[in-house]
Nucleic acid binder design. Sequence first.
DNA 1: TCGGGTTGCTTGACCGGTCAAGTATCGAAG
DNA 2: CTTCGATACTTGACCGGTCAAGCAACCCGA
Lengths: 152, 152
Amino acid sequence: MSDAAPWLDDAEMETWLALIGVVMRLPGALDGQLRRDAELSYFEYVVLAGLEHAPDQTMRMSDLAFVCNGSLSRLSHVARRLEGEGLITRFACPTDGRSTLATLTDGGRERLATAAPGHVTLVRQLIFDELDEVEVRELGALAKRLLGRIQA
Amino acid sequence: MSDAAPWLDDAEMETWLALIGVVMRLPGALDGQLRRDAELSYFEYVVLAGLEHAPDQTMRMSDLAFVCNGSLSRLSHVARRLEGEGLITRFACPTDGRSTLATLTDGGRERLATAAPGHVTLVRQLIFDELDEVEVRELGALAKRLLGRIQA
DNA sequence: TCGGGTTGCTTGACCGGTCAAGTATCGAAG
DNA sequence: CTTCGATACTTGACCGGTCAAGCAACCCGA
């Protein structure tokens, strides 16, 4: 940080503005649709979806938080609400008393089924309708590399 | 939305997960550095930076909100805080009584100068160190198209 | 010139996330 | 087998953003 880091050149700036635009605006767009269709925030949706794809539809809180790209604390708050609505249940891990396992309930699966079609449609509209197969892979490769940096 | 939209195939899913990972995690990373270096949130930083690059370092609130990728309401709250800290000032637009103009103060310029080097360094670390010139343009082109969709 | 709709901005209440602190369990060293 | 530190999670307080309502200035047609 004491090193002189030159400010971005024109091409970099253009790229940065577009990228940060996507980063700042996409969550709002996703939230809106889910809120309207299923009274779910995007993060809540991701939590349910994460559980659905897990073995036994069950996952440790920490792991769930990681795949959802959120903090454990955030997940904990959200899990309490979701459990209150009967969409998930939580119970102590039998093999490690520190861990909590979360499972999707039937109600949660239903809610997910309500939300999913509209969500997929929106994701297609915003992202994949715009891209051909090659571009999808290009974008994926780039995003994966950036994500690697960000997670470290 | 009533149309059957097929769920994402493997390549699309991989791309989506990487993209949404970046989208969810990047703001936190940027916030952290700015908070530590200059007691500024990323959004506050962008507001100041937006003003700095404007003619007379002055901009209408609506326009500023747009370039900052935030709602007018959000900007209004932030502007009140920034004005309280003496980093910007606000005054009525002489040609349109509805509009408010915001200007960067000397204090604001200083604060920005404090924050900027660390911010640029981080952006380089996370994004541009990873990419060569061609990839920068590729990413920019892709992001710009997605942003277009999202804004509509 | 005056009324109705529109635009630009602010405000307050609510809600959700972060951060730091607290609790409980586990593992490993002595 | 005890103790110390690390890991896993929860909780509460604070803070910041969204949403809806409100207000003021503008524009346009009659």
